Simulated scan of single mutants.
Amino acid sequence: MWTSTDLIWLKESYPGLKEKSDKELEGRLSFRMLRLDNQYIVNPSLDQIQRTSVSDYLYFCDTYRIRIKWEDRNAYYSASYETGGRLEATAKRLNKRTIDMHQYPDGGLCLASPMDLYDAFLTGFQLPVYIEDFLIPYLFAQSYYAKKQVWLWGDLDHGIWGLLEWLGRRKHTSEFDLTSTFHFLKSYSKAGKINEILYTRCRNHKPCPCGSGKKTKECHPDIQSAIARLRSGLSSKIIELTRD
């Protein structure tokens, strides 16, 4: 949950977003975001804006109506919703599904992979980190997509295949990466399905195990690496859980 310090920061930084109850914030979230030297900066200074070259210029000022809500007091982080209908309007204009706009079926915003969110808030929730490291970059990407139809930071699939894509794209994997991915695989699917995935002989030229009918390299090219990492990196005790 957010603290009194979080709420003081919110009032100073984003006054349009207000506390509606002890577990809900709602209102207008106005932000500025800039790409500078291949980095993305929330609420940049005038000096930073002036330093940006024309070739690398990417700057958005935008406002969204947002609700941030704790659905579960035991969760590590809150859920967010766009309540002004902008994402729905963009999806309709571009003939996209809700899930294509990185929203869950209930309208919640898919801000990042659950592993990234879990890692960020494992030791405690911080509202400034949630808003400026996750929510605003998500909205910035939505603003860009509405104009260019391109996702700035790539596009992960949803469900178990997105979890595996996330793991497969990492340059280096830690034990935390492996165990957190496995944890969310278990929450997303039945043990039998996980067992089937972990022991799939996945090859780039073979049909993708997601069932699309496409070759793996044309559908989910990163999952081959992810499956190999899970099989070799997880302890036998964890692997044994998939056989229950």
Rank of each mutant, 00 (worst) to 15 (best):
A120E: 13
R28K: 14
S236P: 01
M33G: 05
C219H: 10
I227T: 04
T63Y: 00
E19P: 11
E82H: 08
W2E: 04
D116E: 14
R243N: 13
R169W: 00
C219N: 09
K190M: 06
L167R: 04
K23I: 13
S232T: 13
Y77N: 06
P105N: 03
L36C: 06
S53C: 02
V129E: 09
T5S: 02
L230Q: 12
R203H: 10
I136M: 07
L36K: 13
M33S: 06
T52G: 02
K215T: 14
R170S: 00
E12H: 12
P137H: 02
W70G: 10
H220M: 01
G16N: 10
E240D: 11
W153Y: 14
A112G: 02
R97E: 13
S13Q: 07
K92P: 08
R231T: 15
H220R: 04
E88T: 15
K11L: 14
D22Q: 14
A226L: 09
D244M: 07
W166A: 06
D72Q: 10
P114T: 03
V129Q: 05
F176I: 10
I131W: 07
E240Y: 08
L117Q: 15
E88R: 15
E175G: 08
T181R: 01
L139E: 06
D177R: 05
L135Y: 01
S53E: 14
D22T: 15
E165V: 01
S80H: 01
F176H: 07
L25G: 12
Q48I: 08
S21G: 04
T181C: 11
S53N: 07
G124N: 01
E24G: 13
H158T: 10
D56Q: 10
V150Q: 12
G84P: 04
L185Y: 02
L29S: 10
C110K: 09
P209G: 05
S236N: 13
Q149M: 05
I227C: 00
R67D: 10
D56M: 03
M33E: 09
L164H: 03
F134Y: 14
A141C: 11
P44L: 11
D72Y: 11
I68D: 03
R35E: 15
S45M: 10
I8Y: 08
K190G: 09
L117C: 12
K237Q: 06
E88H: 09
D222G: 05
L36F: 09
